[in-house]
Design a protein around this nucleic acid. Structure first.
Length: 428
RNA sequence: GGAGGGAUGGCAGAGUGGUCUAUUGCGGCGGUCUUGAAAACCGUUGGCCGUAAGGCCCGCAGGUUCGAAUCCUGCUCCCUCCGCCA
């Protein structure tokens, strides 16, 4: 949620900033509602003050033997006026909320305007492996190695699901454990949250109301609106950890991480070439999250990207880091870096981590503040999140980047203890 | 699933229609005293809206009334017991 005061004071500036990521917005109507809202509040406040005083006087007057019938009648009218003004106020506020909750965040100053064609590669680690043989794609490899079973996954969950088995499950679990250990070492607190969340959580994260169709909703009772949904990322849970709280300044930054599967509809987003585990309805991800003071959040974002990168580096995989252009960032985010891993068979880099700074956008939706010690004032915190990491594209990258001519795969060193093998070989 | 009980400020806990501008205690913060600390004493102590005056907030939403923390209705959450159960 943007600050409506900012739109009131600098509508043109806000419109210009938003134009870098969306169709032009017109604030004329919004500002008219805002004006009406404030006038309503003024009138209601005034009338309530009068009613309060007069009503407090009535018992005294009665005691003195005065007739208060006329005053009471007048106050009755005042009460009715207040009620009708409040009704109008609620209507206007609903319109304002509906408008405001659809607006995306303002991009950070150093974010390029426009869509993904303006993304900028800021770093590259390692190099694409050069094969002296025809490399296999990951669907082939994980099938031959017996790591992932697509057919049986589909048998259970339908299209868009797979399952890990045997060494594949061990490797998946080992990857997640490797992440957990690294985040603990970096001072993040481990959280295992509910996977089913209430609607308010999605609102705070900025997924609702605009992106409601991307998540799985659970059937509400007796045809009521679905109240629960399956989280599409642990970020949705972690942003709600401190919802409606006021934190102490010396408690910041708060650093958390969570492991959850992520459930997504991915409606209409399947693309040719995205075979196997590149995009599914459920994938494993560890998410890191920080609540920070505004002045610390830029540095925190760099720190989080760097930390997430060390995870990929530890696996010895080739990747690059891109800074996303405004329109390619999620709606809630002011700035986003993607860590993109090389998938040899696709000749493409695919996102394994998205690290973002939401500034106060989510904090405002979730009423998450901290008390500034120097002033005693409450301010919105900045929230940051980064995947650390999503496994569904990591396993394909591992098997493809680490494959050998005979179809075997060299297990990255950090995973060998978990997998129990140095090399995975095709099964019969 | 059944039956009861409850929700008041950071916490505990009064208040059952009108100086409630929400008693009091604890905790927190500041001060006095002290070499320092403790104790004692004094002061202070939330959120939202509004430029302000001021208004609103006693779980949430409605209602009754000149006036609601207090009465009525619906909802949410928590606790206890019973049943079922990974």
């Amino acid at each position: 949620m943007l600050d409506i005061k900012l739109i009131r004071e600098k509508p043109d500036e806000v419109a210009r900033a938003l134009a870098t990521r969306m169709e032009p917005v017109d604030f004329t109507e919004l500002l008219a509602w805002d004006k009406e809202r404030r006038e309503c509040i003024g009138s209601v406040t005034e009338l309530r003050a009068r009613r309060k005083t007069v009503s407090a006087d009535i018992p005294g007057l009665k005691k003195a033997g005065k007739d208060t019938a006329a005053l009471q009648a007048e106050m009755k009218t005042v009460g009715e006026t207040i009620k009708s003004l409040e009704g109008r106020l609620a209507e206007v506020e609903a319109k304002i909320d509906a408008f405001m909750s659809m607006l995306p965040n303002l991009p950070a100053d150093d974010v390029a305007a426009g869509g993904k064609e303006h993304n900028e590669v800021v770093r590259v680690f390692g190099a694409a492996p050069a094969f002296d043989f025809e490399p296999r794609n990951h669907v082939d490899l994980v099938g031959r190695l017996g790591l992932v079973d697509y057919e049986r996954g589909v048998k259970m969950g339908g299209n868009g699901f797979w399952l890990y088995r045997g060494d594949g499950a061990r490797m998946e679990w080992g990857i997640l454990n490797y992440f957990v250990e690294r985040h603990l070492a970096a001072g993040y607190e481990f959280i295992l949250p509910p996977h089913i969340l209430i609607h308010r959580c999605g609102y705070t994260a900025g997924q609702f109301p605009k992106f409601k169709d991307d998540v799985f909703h659970l059937q509400g009772e007796e045809g009521k609106d679905a109240k629960y949904f399956l989280l599409p990322t642990a970020e949705t849970a972690l942003i709600n950890f401190h919802r409606d709280e006021i934190l102490r300044e010396d408690d910041l930054p708060r650093k958390y991480f969570a492991y959850t599967p992520c459930y997504r509809k991915e409606a209409g987003s399947y693309r040719a070439g995205e075979r196997g585990m590149i995009r599914g309805h459920q994938f494993n991800k560890v998410e890191i999250f920080q609540y920070a003071r505004p002045e610390d959040s830029s540095a925190a974002l760099e720190e989080m990207v760097a930390h997430a990168e060390t995870l990929v580096q530890g696996l010895g995989l080739h990747y690059r880091v891109s800074k996303l252009a405004a329109a390619d960032c999620s709606a809630s985010m002011a700035k986003t870096y993607d860590i993109e891993i090389w998938i040899p068979s696709m000749h493409e880099y695919k996102e394994v981590s998205s690290a973002s700074n939401a500034h106060d956008f989510q904090a405002r939706r979730g009423a998450i503040r901290f008390r500034r010690a120097a002033t005693g004032q409450n301010e919105y915190v900045h929230t940051l999140n980064a995947s650390g990491l999503a496994t569904s594209r990591l396993l394909p990258a591992i098997v493809e980047q680490c494959q050998q001519k005979d179809g075997s795969v060299v297990v990255p060193e950090v995973l060998r203890a978990a997998v129990g093998k140095e090399v995975l070989r095709p099964v019969e």
